[in-house]
């Protein structure tokens, strides 16, 4: 209103006043967006290019083609790798949501001797880098005969310290009265967790689902080590095999990468509204 009356008295209008701080913020955001987007745009663009055009910087291909897509499905095992990735990532995600929330709930809502010690022990696992764990995992997998199997790819991620930590924090925020009320209503402890506590932490479950799925979908090092059967490769491992010692099929790698982003997009689109709703609810509760 103030702006409107200002401009009428002056007799001319520049529209709403833009604060310099906003200009700086927008510029930084725009730069950030460009830095993030350019590689993605080139990835998608390259997937529609012929090999001779790959090293040119043009975004729109001179002769757009779907050959790469037909090739990748007809002449490579990309389809199988895609299914492998989908299967392992989904199973790991389900397992993480189930077990991490079960452990997190127990640590948050049950008082028992050694509770803090267990929690801290789980937290310390977050401080060990994956590279250090690769060798022990490999020895385990080899001794148990898990190499070259789905189980071998999945087992290190089935329960995560991070997930337990996240879920414990969220469950701690649930008032005990909900649990007491359910206990008086006659639910057993497992039912209380499943029917009362879990629906109250959907935002956290959504976030954990996204993190876990994406983490496993893009995992490279462990699946590479755990498998040498090409039929068991996951997408990132399979794509890496397009890159040879002397030449790389960039247009195929980019096509595979473009296809590989689709499930991650879908997962994000499905779960993000729960996350946003969770944030909104948390803000209104006070």
């Amino acid at each position: 209103m103030t702006h409107a009356s200002d401009t009428t008295t002056r007799g001319w209008s520049l529209g709403p006043v833009i604060h310099p701080g906003r200009i700086v913020a927008w510029t930084l955001l725009a730069l950030g967006a460009v830095v993030m987007m350019v590689p993605l745009v080139y990835m998608v663009a390259t997937s529609f290019k012929y090999p001779n055009e790959v090293y040119e910087l043009n975004i729109i291909p001179h002769e757009p083609t779907l050959d790469n897509y037909t090739y990748i499905f007809q002449n490579t095992r990309f389809g199988i790798w895609f299914v492998n990735s989908l299967l392992t990532s989904s199973l790991v995600t389900v397992s993480v949501l189930f077990f991490d929330s079960l452990v997190g709930y127990t640590l948050a809502k049950f008082k028992f001797r050694g509770r803090e010690f267990v929690f801290i022990a789980i937290l310390t696992t977050l401080m060990i880098p994956t590279e250090m764990l690769i060798v022990p995992w490999y020895i385990m997998a080899k001794n148990f005969g898990w190499l070259n199997s789905y189980w071998g790819i999945m087992f290190p991620g089935l329960i995560t310290g991070f997930g337990v930590f996240l879920m414990r924090q969220f469950f701690s925020g649930i008032p005990d009265d909900y649990i007491h009320a359910a206990r008086i209503d006659g639910l057993n402890e497992f039912q209380i967790w499943w029917k009362v506590a879990m629906p109250l932490v959907t935002p956290a479950l959504s976030a954990l689902a996204i993190f876990t799925f994406l983490g496993n979908w893009t995992a490279f090092l462990w699946p590479l080590i755990a498998t040498n059967d090409r039929a068991l490769y996951t997408v990132p491992v399979g794509l890496a095999s397009f890159s040879g010692e002397f030449l790389s099929d960039w247009e195929l790698i980019m096509t595979g990468a473009t296809l590989a982003t689709l499930p991650t997009l879908i997962v994000f689109i499905i779960f993000q509204r729960y996350i946003i709703r969770g944030v909104v609810l948390a803000g209104l509760k006070g």
Binding site: D177, A181, I184
Partner: peptide, 20 residues
């Protein structure tokens, strides 16, 4: 006895209504 076996009902300070 477990709470459920005492044949009691309780109303809590924050109501403890399940929001979902």
């Amino acid at each position: 006895l477990e709470p459920k076996d005492r044949n009691i009902a309780m109303v809590f300070q924050n109501y403890a209504l399940y929001p979902h």
